[in-house]
């Protein structure tokens, strides 16, 4: 079966100016990422800020050209598709429904925009499909006539989802779709996304920094660190048996509502990862609690098995 999303050795380097006369520094935001997502499944991508997960999303959406490597969507090369065809296939839902919706447009016009941009759809069809999309995400026709500022955060995120669905895409890239929301609203949106996936046969790339959220929605999880996927496993397996020390630390830092356990010491130290200054050897070694001889000098090779992929000297 053709994967819904496939990326091959994807890289993106940003040249960042340091000052007027200083030479630009290279930030390797995404540094050799490969994976495939089968249709109808959900790949969760987790990692701290600055790990390259949003850059990855923007490249898969075609919003940012990769420095090297390839993105295939539904078997076709993204770079060979025109914008309209791409929009019919793949759509985004972003983190902040306060800044991703035009405050001067009514909800129904915001949702209609992708249809209008296609250029060849008559007004009656646009109106019908907008009404359908609003109903799908649980918004009333009356709410369609309002402005984003008249809606709550959860309702705005529903608008963003309706806009993503109005072209009936096969793939939706969700970049931190619930991070700006309250837990109660987050639960509603996660339930909605899951229901839509099942009913419409959607494929998601689901980016989040919250492992507990990813565990709930994703069938497979990729853990990113400084531009690389350091571990990829089936969701359940990853949570029962995290193999990479970074995954273990991320998992340990999830604060479940269990009183008496205290705040865990995740053991990562105080050094923060800097994508402009990727350490030699294993890029995680300055923070790794299990660092040993080869880590500082040799880059670990990814080991792939039936259980998934790990990039760590402790494996193999």
């Amino acid at each position: 079966m053709t994967p819904a999303i496939e990326v091959r050795d994807l890289r993106r380097i940003f040249n960042v100016r340091q000052g007027l006369f200083a030479p630009p520094r290279q930030v390797r935001a995404v540094d050799g990422v490969s994976f495939a997502v089968p249709p109808g499944s959900v790949l969760g991508v987790v990692g701290e800020s600055g790990c390259g997960k949003s850059t990855l999303a923007r490249m898969i959406l075609g919003l940012l050209p990769p420095t090297s490597g390839e993105v295939l969507v539904d078997g076709q090369r993204l770079s060979s598709m025109d914008r309209k065809a791409r929009a019919r296939l793949i759509q985004p839902v972003f983190q902040d429904p306060f800044s991703s919706l035009n405050p001067r447009r009514r909800v129904q016009d915001i949702v209609a925009m992708p249809l209008v941009a296609q250029g060849n759809i008559d007004r009656a069809t646009v109106a019908r499909r907008v009404a359908e999309a609003l109903e799908r995400v649980g918004l009333s026709a009356e709410q369609g006539g309002r402005f984003p500022s008249q809606l709550s955060g959860g309702q705005r995120q529903r608008v963003a989802i309706a806009r993503a669905l109005v072209l009936r895409p096969r793939i939706v890239i969700c970049d931190e779709p619930t991070s700006a929301l309250d837990v109660s609203v987050q639960a509603q949106i996660l339930n909605l996304l899951d229901e839509l996936r099942r009913d419409l046969g959607l494929t998601y790339l689901f980016i989040s920094h919250n492992l507990a959220v990813v565990e709930h929605v994703a069938s497979e999880v990729a853990v990113m660190y400084l531009g690389r996927i350091v571990e990829r496993q089936e969701s359940e397996a990853l949570f029962h048996n995290p193999r990479h020390p970074y995954t273990q630390a991320l998992l340990a830092s999830v604060l479940t509502p269990e009183p008496g356990l205290g705040v865990p010491d995740v053991g990562l130290g105080d050094i923060m990862p800097d994508p402009a200054n990727v350490p030699p050897g294993c890029r995680f070694h300055p923070r790794c609690p299990r660092v040993f001889a080869p880590c500082a000098t040799q880059e670990p090779r990814p080991t792939t098995s039936a259980a998934g992929l790990v990039e760590c000297h402790l494996e193999g």
């Binding site: 639960a187 507990a212 565990e215 969701s235 359940e236 949570f239 509502p257």
Partner: peptide, 12 residues
């Protein structure tokens, strides 16, 4: 009940 906790609610 809203808080996602790994392993608490079955996926789906």
């Amino acid at each position: 009940a809203c808080v996602p906790v790994p392993g608490k609610v079955k996926r789906g």
